[in-house]
């Protein structure tokens, strides 16, 4: 069997005395789409952020593409360039235009020519449907447009995997669809993705596997149909009953 792209082994993380990740084990194969769900404060974001080392861990190992995560410096920067990240609050660079947001990484990190980076950026913006916004500043765009720009920015690095931390939670309801659409097509295109979300529809249709977290523990994981149809743990049942009522 091929080596998994992402592999977490007995990962523990504390914030002070708060045990946020408890002995987490998780593997993600190339091309696999994993959705992480769970109640607020259960450690989903921390898990995501640990994978590109925006958060350090206290024990355990994380390997990406066969290599343990580098600790510091250029090697770490290279790893991060290979792992795209999409944040709940978009975090587009406020002083740069949308186009500049997308081309910055390819030019400064990958050393691409400006013309080349620009051309690819326009293609990506076309793909997420906001090519006509290229010269605007982030503050001039709607939330949905900003999040699609952020996805384009991450994709511009040609990452091996993408991490999404509640990408639609900060959006007005009418804009959620346009972002999920982009993510769905990405998943269909074979991108390796870890998606933290409360969008159960997306989990059902796009995910290959659903991972349920509670209190820092990875409680259960299964294919979406199995997980939603027949949850094993009490906590998952409880969680689903609350979420699916809405």
């Amino acid at each position: 069997m091929a080596q998994p792209l992402i592999e977490l082994n007995s990962v523990n993380k504390w914030f002070g005395s708060l045990h946020v990740l408890r002995d987490v084990n998780l593997t993600v194969d190339r091309g696999e789409v994993v959705v992480v769900i769970g109640p607020s404060g259960s450690g989903k974001s921390t898990l995501c952020r640990a994978i590109n080392r925006l958060e350090t861990i206290n024990s355990g190992t994380i390997t990406f593409d066969g290599q343990p995560l580098p600790a510091e410096g250029r090697a770490l920067a290279r790893l991060r360039a290979d792992v795209g990240m999409v944040f709940q609050s978009f975090n587009l660079f406020a002083h740069l235009t949308i186009l500049q947001n997308v081309t910055l990484g390819p030019i400064k990190v990958r050393g691409e020519s400006k013309a080349n980076a620009r051309e690819r950026a326009m293609q990506l913006l076309e793909r997420v449907g906001i090519a006509n916004q290229a010269d605007k500043y982030p503050a001039q765009l709607s939330g949905g447009q900003q999040q699609r720009a952020a996805i384009a920015r991450a994709l511009a690095m040609q990452p091996k995997a993408m991490l999404f931390d509640e990408p639609t939670s900060a959006l007005d309801p009418e804009m959620v669809g346009e972002v999920l659409e982009v993510m769905t097509s990405l998943a269909a295109g074979g991108m390796t993705m870890i998606v933290v979300t409360h969008e159960m529809g997306f989990a059902r249709h796009a995910a290959k596997r659903v991972v349920f977290m509670a209190d820092g523990e990875l409680v259960e994981q299964a294919a979406p149909a199995e997980f939603f149809g027949n949850p094993q743990s009490e906590r998952a049942k409880d969680f689903l009953s609350k979420v699916l009522q809405h």
Binding site: L54, G73, R80, M85, N91, L104, R153
Partner: peptide, 9 residues
């Protein structure tokens, strides 16, 4: 954080 996540030093 976003800058770090795209690999800027």
């Amino acid at each position: 954080e976003a800058a770090r996540s795209i690999g800027l030093t």
